[in-house]
Design a binder for these strands. Structure first.
Lengths: 198, 198
DNA sequence: GCCTAATATGTCAGACTCTGCCACTTCTGG
DNA sequence: CCAGAAGTGGCAGAGTCTGACATATTAGGC
């Protein structure tokens, strides 16, 4: 997954290109040496900019891998809001995430590498999860509207966060080197783990 | 939730008391001024120790709020492993978390305050999620053993992460000032949100 | 093409978190 | 009482990150 494309002139294009380049270099270095063994200074030197500039493009070192998921959260929210209102909520969520996975972004090779890096360091993975909580804030009102009965917000929170866990687990599994399944197939598997079977 | 009680003589007792004191002071300061506005130096000064000592007791500043998750994760894992093997997995997980909540620890006031502080800052939330990952590593093998069929690890991961989300959401709701329900009641509500109703 | 305002960049100092090292202090238990 | 174990604080330094500021670059209007 890469950044949301924003129209804004040549400078915006240049900015996005610099961001992408820094991120690409960072992910490669992390993949090779481990996140904790690569400094911001090293990333900057490899790209050919100053550390100060790296920090201008990415608030934190982790964000060179994670990127800025905010735009994608809005995308999922919009997809979810557009689902038929009588559709079961789990089906609606699954379809919304699938639509997201169908959106062009990083190449498959780079995407897998980034996910592998993400899964290799607990702090990095946790920060990624924390960023995805932003998605929860966008999705919970939409889900709550489809629920009836007591504790609607609590239940909506639960369903949304469980679905985010499915998404994370599916992508993590997909990133494993020998994974033969597509990300969508694995997503369906993890969603299925929470469906009525008992 | 406080530290796991470990027999080990007077020194262990003293260590636990120092940890508890540092944590109490930290949570109070964070609650009053915000996590990012309170330095480790300030916590140390208020307690009457050096910053170096604070770092001896807590690997990271965030851990002054979160505590040591390893002991509690093992506790939950042990509770889960001791459940009857034919019990539905969701019931077994719920019972294990309930047993954890029944363990004496911080006072209710301090517990609520810590949960509120936990939810207030991205860095704290992320570190708390990292704790979830640690627990997951302990719980997934136990859950996977109770599953049959394909993709057992993926499904176990999903179930465990979803249950941890339930736990987190319940505690967060409980920490809200006007919450009238007990933490256990809220935990049952969030678990219920993932049970067959559709 | 020229010029100007807007934007981008690098240098620098400093704040904060965290770690390893070491000298010194405290304390437990035989 | 005493020795060894454990605890403490001071210190330097590494790494991340931020604000300030001077300088460089560039887009766009004329």
């Amino acid at each position: 997954m890469s950044e949301v494309t924003r129209p804004g002139g040549t400078r915006a294009i240049a900015r996005d290109a610099v961001r992408a380049r820094i991120s690409e270099v960072a992910v490669d270095l992390f993949d090779e040496h481990g996140f904790d063994n690569v400094t911001v200074e090293q990333i900057a030197a490899t790209v050919g900019v100053s550390p100060r500039s790296v920090h201008r493009y990415f608030p934190a070192k982790e964000d060179t891998v994670i990127g800025d998921p905010a735009g994608w959260g809005e995308h999922v929210r919009d997809q979810l809001a557009a689902r038929p209102s009588e559709e079961p909520i789990w089906d609606a969520l699954l379809a919304s995430y699938e639509a997201l996975l169908a959106t062009p972004g990083r190449s498959e090779v780079q995407g897998r590498k980034a996910m592998r890096v993400l899964g290799s360091t607990p702090a990095l993975r946790a920060r990624n999860l924390e960023k995805h909580l932003l998605w929860a804030r966008l999705l919970v009102p939409v889900v709550a509207e489809r629920l009836e009965g007591d504790y609607r917000t609590l239940r909506a929170e639960t369903i949304v966060q469980a679905s985010l866990a499915c998404f994370d687990i599916a992508l993590t599994a997909w990133a494993e080197t020998d994974a033969a399944d597509s990300a969508v197939e694995l997503l369906r598997r993890s969603f299925g783990a929470l469906q009525p079977t008992a």
